[in-house]
Write a protein that binds this DNA or RNA. Structure first.
Lengths: 66, 66
DNA sequence: ACACAAAGTCAAGTAAGCTTTACTTTGTGT
DNA sequence: ACACAAAGTAAAGCTTACTTGACTTTGTGT
C-alpha cells in the first residue's frame, strides 16, 4: 500500500514527529508507514484524512496486491 | 466504527458468507465487523469499497471516538 | 413440529499494527 | 570537521485483526 504522507508533510513543512503528534501515534509508526513496513489501521487512516482534509483514497493507494 | 455492510449486503441479497467470499476473509470476520467487535484493516476496507463501488467513507463511519 | 439456512458467538491460535527504548544514518548549517 | 535535527532501523512486548472449528440462536418455509 503506497501513500502520499511524505509529500503531504513536505507541503506543510512537517517532520515525521509533527505528523505523529497530530495523529496521536509514535514517530516510528509514521516512519514505518511511510517506508512501507506496514499499513495503517483504518481508524488511523481516517485520522490522517481528517488532518489533511482529504479522502482516504487520496492519501493511500491500494494498488490491488493479492 | 460503524459501517453499512449489512445494508449493502441486503441490497444485493448477499449473506455474510457471500460477502466473506467476495472480500476473501472468513465469515466470522464479516460478522465481527458488522457486529462491531473490531474494525477492518485498511486493505480490507479498500476491498469492500471496490466490491461495493463506493468510497471507504461511504461504507465506514469513523464517528470520532478518542 | 421439524428442517434448514443464516447469523451470532466462543476459544485458541497466528499475524499485523503499534509502543517504548535505543541506536545508526543522512542531510544541513556553521 | 563538528554539531544538530530528521530520518531510518531494530528488538521486545502488547493489542487488535483475522483464522479455523465448533457450537447456539434466530428466522423462514413446509
Amino acid at each position: 500500500m503506497k501513500n502520499r504522507l511524505k509529500v503531504l508533510r513536505a507541503e506543510r513543512n512537517w517532520t515525521q514527529a509533527d505528523l505523529a503528534l497530530a495523529l496521536d501515534v509514535s514517530r516510528q509508526t509514521i516512519n514505518a508507514i511511510e517506508t512501507g513496513k506496514f499499513d495503517p489501521s483504518l481508524p488511523l487512516a481516517f485520522k490522517a484524512a481528517r488532518v489533511f482534509q482529504l479522502r482516504i483514497e487520496d492519501i493511500f493507494d491500494d494498488e490491488e496486491g493479492a
